[in-house]
Simulated assay, not measured.
Amino acid sequence: MGVYVLLAAAIAAEVTGTVSLKLSDGFSRLWPSVVVIVAYALAFVLLARVLSAGMAVGVAYAIWAAAGVALVALVGALFLDERMTPLMVAGLVLVIGGVVLLELGGAR
């Protein structure tokens, strides 16, 4: 399995866990709470596999974190009635742009 496929799966698991945190209502709801634990465990296992496959930790974490932030913000805006202003969108674009620059700077 390619390193970027593993990283995408780690990101998907992290986003699932983070959205489930909101749905767990402070860990007072059982099934969303279970999803949080399983999803975060899976996210870290997959991220560890990405790192053991040779991706630089700074690049892997930057992609994982930035994509997670952007996707959670989008899920919040689209499905959880959370606000998304143009300034917030600009911030997300800057975060993603920074990750792209990290990736380009590490390319040889």
Rank of each mutant, 00 (worst) to 15 (best):
A67M: 15
D25N: 13
V95G: 03
Y40C: 07
G98K: 11
M1W: 09
I11V: 15
L78I: 15
S24F: 10
A60S: 04
W31V: 08
V99N: 05
A13E: 03
L7D: 14
S24Y: 08
G97N: 04
A41F: 15
V100L: 15
A60R: 03
D25H: 15
V75I: 15
V15D: 08
D25W: 10
L92T: 02
F27A: 03
V50P: 10
G58H: 08
M88C: 00
S20E: 06
R49L: 15
L74C: 13
A12S: 08
L87D: 04
G91D: 06
P86C: 07
L42H: 07
V45P: 01
I37R: 05
Y40G: 01
L71G: 12
A53H: 07
S33K: 09
I96E: 08
V93A: 05
I96N: 09
M84H: 04
A13M: 12
R29K: 14
G97V: 02
L6M: 15
I96W: 05
Y40E: 06
L102R: 01
G91P: 00
G17W: 00
A9W: 06
G17I: 04
I96T: 11
A43I: 02
A107I: 08
A70I: 10
V72K: 04
A73T: 06
V57S: 01
F79H: 14
Y61P: 00
A65G: 10
S33L: 10
L46T: 11
A39D: 07
M88R: 07
F44D: 09
I37H: 04
V45A: 09
A90S: 06
L21V: 15
W31K: 05
F79K: 13
V45E: 10
V5I: 14
A66F: 01
P32Y: 02
V59Q: 05
G91F: 00
A67W: 10
I63Y: 01
L102V: 00
G68N: 11
V50K: 13
A43E: 04
V38H: 08
V99M: 11
V75L: 07
V15R: 12
E14V: 02
V35D: 10
M84N: 02
R49H: 14
A39V: 10
I63G: 00
A65V: 11
L71M: 15
V35G: 05
A90C: 02
L47H: 08
G97C: 01
F79W: 15
V50Y: 11
I96A: 15
M84S: 07
W64M: 05
A73F: 02
V34T: 09
W64F: 08
V50R: 13
K22T: 08
L47Q: 10
G98I: 06
D25Y: 12
A66E: 09
S33R: 09
L6F: 15
K22W: 12
S28D: 02
D81L: 03
V35M: 12
